[in-house]
Amino acid sequence: MTEVRHDWTKEEISDIYHTPLLDLIYRAATVHRENKDYAEVQISSLISVKTGGCPEDCAYCPQAARYQTGVNVHAILPKEEVVAAAQKAKAGGASRLCMGAAWREVRDNRDFDKVIEMVQAVNELDMEVCCTLGMLTESQAQRLADAGLYAYNHNLDTSEDDYKRIITTRTYDDRLKTIENVRKAKISVCSGGIIGLGETVEDRISMLKTLSNMPQHPESVPVNALVPVEGTPLAEQPRVSVWDMVRMIATARIVMPRTVVRLSAGRTEMSTVEQALCFMAGASSIFAGEKLLTTPNPAFDEDMAMFELLGLTPRKAFKNGRPHQAKNIEESVIA
């Protein structure tokens, strides 16, 4: 069994990342296959419960109020609409529902009260519930945990050195503090990044070093390919090569061997063959459904056809226990 480490150096991760591609895929696939459930892939669905009007300046995001992207701003959704979306996602094979709100940070107000009610309602559907709501205090994280939240997403996006080029309205330390608050509440952590932002390979390696050297690895690491949106500062960025995605997924799999590596945004631009390479390299989760917040995504039936072709099976909810009962990632293989 591959050792779980928290002391990776940039040089070690760089050597892995730059391994000849076929050797890299083979090594990552070997690590992945140490888990008897390597052919299981978790299907998650993502719904925007509050869209647009965000005060942040994330250079990639169509929901930032300062950019003209054509995104229609809408207030927080009714709980009934979210529950209906969750039921549809579950019927399509999803075991996790992630609810996103275009907020800079959570505020203790009626909208947060509504999110708490949504978490409780979706949890009752026997689905893992994830939220991505911006920055959280320790008490807010605990309140979400008490409501039954299973996971919280808070991506690092890029390296610490590159961060100010992408976002100026908060700091890297703000990101890390929220992740720390989530950990204290015993909620599982979902944190990864985006490639194709104009970052260097060194930035990608640095981000993986930050994630892999956390005291406890994130239970989930999304690897997103930038989906350029007209009106954002990164609208003219070229499409990320599938080989870059494969290298990131494979490297993440090797340095965080028991983490769920998520093949996330950008799948609409990838063929079944390209996605198959990502699964071979260690991806063990996807987002399914027609949209990822505001960007297009493959439909459930397309993904089910791909699963059948590749011999993949959807992972069931709560495989590692209910909230507050989940096994420590260092003691349990959850890939």
Rank of each mutant, 00 (worst) to 15 (best):
S191E: 13
T69D: 05
D161F: 02
T158V: 09
A141S: 14
P62A: 14
E105D: 13
S191L: 12
T295I: 11
Q325T: 10
A317W: 06
E199T: 01
K88G: 00
D113S: 12
D157N: 08
H32E: 05
W8A: 03
T132N: 11
T200Q: 05
I13G: 02
G70F: 01
T30K: 12
E180M: 01
S271N: 12
E308Q: 12
D108C: 01
A39V: 08
F300P: 05
R204S: 08
I13H: 06
T19S: 05
R27I: 06
V240E: 07
K50D: 06
L77P: 02
P233A: 09
S220M: 07
A121F: 08
A75D: 15
K164Y: 03
F287D: 11
D37T: 10
E56D: 12
L176P: 00
L292K: 07
L133M: 09
K10Y: 05
S45Y: 02
A86Q: 05
E56C: 09
P218M: 10
K88Y: 00
C131D: 02
S285V: 03
M304V: 07
N123F: 05
L46R: 10
D126G: 04
E160Q: 11
T295A: 09
T169M: 04
L293M: 14
V227P: 07
A335N: 15
I187W: 10
T9G: 04
L211I: 08
I76G: 09
G193C: 09
P55Q: 12
G311R: 08
I167T: 11
R204M: 10
T200D: 13
H217Q: 10
A235G: 00
H154V: 05
H32W: 00
M207H: 08
G231K: 09
D126F: 05
V333Q: 11
D126W: 03
V229S: 05
A283N: 08
S241Q: 06
V242F: 00
T9A: 03
L277M: 15
E219K: 06
G198T: 08
I334C: 09
K319P: 00
V122T: 04
A101G: 10
G93P: 00
A317D: 04
E274K: 07
K316V: 14
L208H: 09
N109S: 07
V71F: 02
S220K: 02
N72C: 07
K319G: 06
V49P: 01
D113E: 13
Q42W: 00
V83A: 10
C190T: 10
I116W: 02
I16M: 03
S332P: 00
A335S: 15
A276L: 11
S271K: 12
M214E: 15
I187D: 13
V273T: 15
T295M: 05
M135D: 02
L97T: 03
N320I: 02
V333Y: 09
V227D: 08
A65T: 03
V223C: 13
R247N: 08
S271H: 11
